[in-house]
Design a protein around this nucleic acid. Structure first.
Lengths: 242, 242
DNA sequence: CTTTTTATGGTCTTTAAGACACTTAATGGT
DNA sequence: ACCATTAAGTGTCTTAAAGACCATAAAAAG
């Protein structure tokens, strides 16, 4: 890379090939939990390249605006779902000249979580939107490397289930502890001890008892909780505390 | 963003403004541990912009080569230190139109660790290279948002010290447990229980006893260990295991 | 050869997690 | 009304990990 001594010589050379940058996109991986399944939001691509394949609801970063990378991800999700998800966190940045047939392409991937809602595909009529259950993901051929990105996000979310209640953002605003435990069990792929799970969460004081209860069919009704403000940032594992 | 139906119409429009992408750089934050201090590698910028300020040893991603983002970071570090650091991991991607006066700029930051060695500034004669102690970082004005990037990396490394021996990559190949504990204490900013620290590390079986010993001045000599292959990937906290 | 210094090991205490039986509060059938 | 069934929530003993602190080991310094 050539060096420029000052602004004048930089500007004089600004259009040279060496300043060509990769294509830059943002790709949010939006998860939800519904009917005992973890699901991810996919859109059917209506344009070249990978037209007709399903992929993540991402898009190009617009350099003519001053919104941040994170807000770009939020905006893409709002276009597809109608709402801004309550949890969004940068996941990883994938870049190579193999990802996209157009050339060197870099995407900043985000993990997002929200309560399940019916797809608002009417909002963006050109593209179809759907919640795809994660255990049936291999039945679809996804665009680009979106399959790997989703697996990467899923693995990170699994890690979070070990020491935080971040997964709760995939539930409705009010939820029960048995629901949250089921979600964690799906993420971890193994059953959890009811008592230990409840103990850790209650002692961490990350949830608020709404006073309401809910029973699904028979059995004792469960207490409805909602998350404390910002509880996503906290851990409930001793070693990871201060 | 305009949509293109097929490759032909895409190529016909490829040079339009909408495909202008942000400047894309890679910025490795290389830490080491020397004389009881955590230090970070800085280079003095010899070119516009921010000429004369100290900054991270990063640079532009070259789209005319097919090396990965990660290898780009490795290459930048090799240029400055002469060696490829044994630990390199993607940290976070920072992007906005405020970071760089040239416009929208995105940088993929990496955390790297290596054993201390004297600066090999002779290799890249145009730029000065130095190890800057982290607790004296505020005495320098750094280029762009590199101060925040370093703080971000430092915080992530602190987290790793809670549940892994990743910090050991900042030590020489052979090191003692007291040395490693000191490093963890510097990172965490608090003293650790000698017995607990040793127990956790020994039970995790992430180190190999080299059979050698070393004494610094007086006192019983300490056993020299080296890391097991890939020990950076493992945790020594129960809750985070399978 | 004793004192000092630092590394390493022993072990009791404290705290968190696992296991599992028990109680509670709802539904549904007789 | 009563009892069986179901699922939520609790009590408590056991097990495992971490904290605290003391004891021993191996070197240097005098």
């Amino acid at each position: 890379m050539t060096q420029y001594a000052d602004e004048a010589s930089f500007l004089a050379n600004y259009n040279r090939r060496e300043f060509d940058a990769p294509l830059l996109t943002v790709d949010p991986v939006l998860f939800t939990y519904h009917q005992a399944q973890l699901k991810v939001l996919l859109v059917e691509r209506s344009a070249y390249p990978e037209r007709g394949l399903w992929g993540l609801p991402g898009g190009f970063v617009q350099i003519d605006t001053d919104i941040s990378l994170e807000d770009t991800a939020r905006r893409k999700l709002q276009e597809k779902t109608g709402i801004i998800p309550p949890y969004l966190e940068q996941l990883y940045t994938f870049g190579s000249n193999q990802r996209d047939k157009r050339g060197w392409a870099v995407t900043v991937a985000y993990t997002a979580l929200m309560a399940y809602q019916e797809c608002a595909s009417h909002i963006e009529s050109v593209s179809d939107v759907q919640w795809q259950p994660l255990d049936q993901l291999n039945k679809l051929t996804l665009a680009f490397d979106h399959q790997q990105i989703i697996e990467f996000a899923r693995e990170r979310l699994r890690q979070k289930a070990l020491y935080s209640i971040v997964p709760a953002y995939a539930l409705p605003e009010k939820f029960t502890l048995p629901e949250l435990q089921q979600l964690h069990e799906v993420l971890l792929g193994k059953p959890l001890q009811k008592k230990s799970f409840r103990r850790r969460i209650e002692e961490a004081e990350l949830l608020i008892d709404t006073g309401e209860k809910r029973s699904d069919g028979s059995g004792r009704p469960a207490v409805l909780y909602r998350m404390k403000e910002g509880a996503g940032g906290y851990t409930f594992v001793r070693n990871l505390e201060e």
